[in-house]
Design a protein around this nucleic acid. Structure first.
Lengths: 132, 132
DNA sequence: CTGGCACTTGAACCGTGGTTCAAGTCAACC
DNA sequence: GGTTGACTTGAACCACGGTTCAAGTGCCAG
């Protein structure tokens, strides 16, 4: 009757490893809904949460930030502001990567010899000037 | 008469820290053109190389890969193939980030309450399914 | 010639995100 | 009731890209 999932099931269905799931638990990102003996048992809803965690990771949030993001705490308004800010940052990152991609493409195709003579060879104009 | 730069000059003019420059040297990415006493002295050409290193980092190459990339070794053809491949990878990354940015923007603006009810809240369709 | 300051070194440490390992627990099948 | 195999734990280890530290060296100013 119980719909509970094994850690291995959750791993398979989420695309994460069991060790990553235990790691996330230690970090306070997730928790098991029950224990069967010593074994973690999860309700299927965990999968939604894990999808969100993966999406947030892909958006560039750190695990610590995601913990905040998915906590019960933050008011929607604050949350939306955070997401909007991250959207802007991601956008800037996209712009940078686009310039870089164009540079790579150019240099892959141009006929300068040696390659290092190409004026576009690994020359990204406008990298942030501070220490990254 | 010598145009040689101090490590601090290079740091200032490249946007890197002296410790990063020494780190790069240990990794075989750069070397000093001379020593004045114990101190490293660089010809200004180092700045071009450092720009390339920063561009390549921004393109997602690891320092080890950059060492290869900037070595005297690789034939232009092989090099161009590498750059083309990285261009494709960066492009895929851009596509993913674009989807994520759109999701973030949407969720920042929609009026679902609570936010977690929004069907687009941190839901990236098509994240690579394997372990990242 | 002497002091101060910027440099030098190697080694240790950091944050991020995990993986790997040894040793132990436990449910289930034969 | 004993073996197997998947889970458990804590601790150590990994890669990556650096930063920080203590201790030492040496250029240049006064």
């Amino acid at each position: 009757m119980s719909e509970l999932l094994d850690i291995a099931d959750v791993a398979r269905r989420s695309g994460l490893t069991p060790s990553a799931l235990r790691f996330y638990e230690r970090k306070g990102l997730i928790e098991a809904d029950a224990r069967i003996g010593l074994r973690r048992a999860y309700r299927p809803e965990i999968l939604t949460r894990l999808t969100r965690i993966r999406a947030a990771r892909a958006a560039g949030f750190t695990l610590a930030q995601i913990t905040e993001l998915l906590a019960e705490r933050p008011a929607d308004a604050a949350l939306r502001a955070l997401l909007a800010e991250r959207a802007r940052e991601v956008d800037a990152h996209i712009a940078q990567l686009t310039a870089i991609r164009d540079g790579l493409r150019h240099t892959a195709r141009c006929r300068h010899q040696p390659l290092s003579a190409c004026p576009h060879f690994l020359t990204a104009k406008s990298l942030p000037h501070g220490r990254s």
